[in-house]
Write a protein that binds this DNA or RNA. Sequence first.
RNA 1: CGGGGCGUAGCGCAGUUUGGUUAGCGCGCUAGUUUUGGGAACUAGAGGUCGCGAGUUCGAAUCUCGCCGCCCCGACCA
Length: 479
Amino acid sequence: MARNITPREKDYSQWYLDVIKAAEMADYAPVRGCMVIRPTGYAIWESIQSQLDERFKETGHVNAYFPLLIPSSFLEKEAKHVEGFSPECAVVTYAGGEELEEPLVIRPTSETVIGHMYSKWIQSWRDLPILINQWCNVLRWEKRPRLFLRTSEFLWQEGHTAHATKEEALEETLRMLEVYRSFMEEVLALPVLTGEKSEGERFPGAENTYTCEAMMTDKRALQAGTSHFLGQNFAKAFDIRFQNKDGELEYAWTTSWGVSTRLIGAIIMTHADNDGLVLPPNVAPVKTVILPITPDQNLLQEKILPEAQKISESLKKILGANRVVLDTQFHMRPGDRFFYHLQKGVPLRLELGEAEMKSSHLRAVRRDTGEVVNISFDAVEREVPRLLENIQNTLYRKARSFREENTYHVTSFEEFNEVLNKKGGFIKAYFAGSPEDEKAIKEATTATIRCFLLNEPTEGTCFYTKKRGGKLAVFAKAY
RNA sequence: CGGGGCGUAGCGCAGUUUGGUUAGCGCGCUAGUUUUGGGAACUAGAGGUCGCGAGUUCGAAUCUCGCCGCCCCGACCA
């Protein structure tokens, strides 16, 4: 057991912070609520970024960049948007040695400035759709920050699209939700429920917000990504109009969607254990590490190191040049070298010492289960990818089983309270209440509607109001 | 913004109640030696204007006043 990590059962928040510290993922910045993302953490973000970016491009999107500063008047153009975001905005009022004529908001999100630009770029139905994404930072002045989960400044991507018809925009909203779902499940091994947010949890200014909700190992819910159907709200606020084929002027239909560095928090709280980080191979910046081990310098230089280099080269061809590391930290003792990679979550460790040289086998140790597998030198190229795939699948299945074991169906408020107090986790229930009912439930229990599940055509009696026609919702305590 | 706690070495803390001369401990760090297959041991070192400012006093980490910052709980949080 790792001596520098508080056990998860003892103090979950402290465990989370200890894992981040032990893996050297992030550190607190001098400014409250801000974090420094260290190389180990940033490499994970780069891995997320490159793989998501590919999926965005496969679905027809292109990247662009819009500015950090937004005229404060822009935010005010959409009533609900300004109401939702103004409390957490930081505003620049002074620059170049003088008071600014108009204060500039540091973007909390970019719908407004992008809407402004789209109104200039769109005149004809031929200009649509516009499918733009940007990778950037945003700032939201959070009262209670937590590393990766909720920091004042964070990195994310925000997609912003404009369409000629409502149907097309809705289709885009759900397409991107599906891109998120498949990415999270296939790459991050993060099982998620997809659904629609209730009115109270909707993005300020959206007609509809769709979400991917994941269960963390403390049974709380984490919103891992959202996709918004903005209707014509922003088009009307920013005058995004086009002439249709019949020569009539129409407002465009827009969407926006985003995921952030919060995903790294989700990976930690889904897969990490009491020894530290555990990374699914598909997102791991380093998929495998080769550790030559021996106190015998001659043996090391003449036999072990050349063999390790040979194996490293052949694995690099299969897994990617940067995905395989040959550990040559010989100033460290073996135990320290094991823990170094263990705590950074490297999925597979390949040990090569005197015993392995004699038997022409590598000693492979899985990060997820600790299981040891011997791999013959000539089977490395076949067995290592197979093991990595197995680790990926095992992590996903384990997380999904955990969620399923901690999901309950209730039909009454009494039952709801009982499950919440005694068991925790996700609660599925038919709900037909008002936003006021939702608020009352939150006040009484601190649990919120995470979403109304997609692809659940059945209706039932509301567990709270006993009205008919309730939709199937998932409730949970959330981050 | 309300309630509570805390600022002393890179980190974690003791010392403050009852003022006293070289401000300590653990981890970490540096050097050397012996070690090395799941987080080493010994030896020798480096590292502090005790959060900031003013006051009381022969003398302040310690007492008084003011300020600043951080953490926890709550409210808030697409």
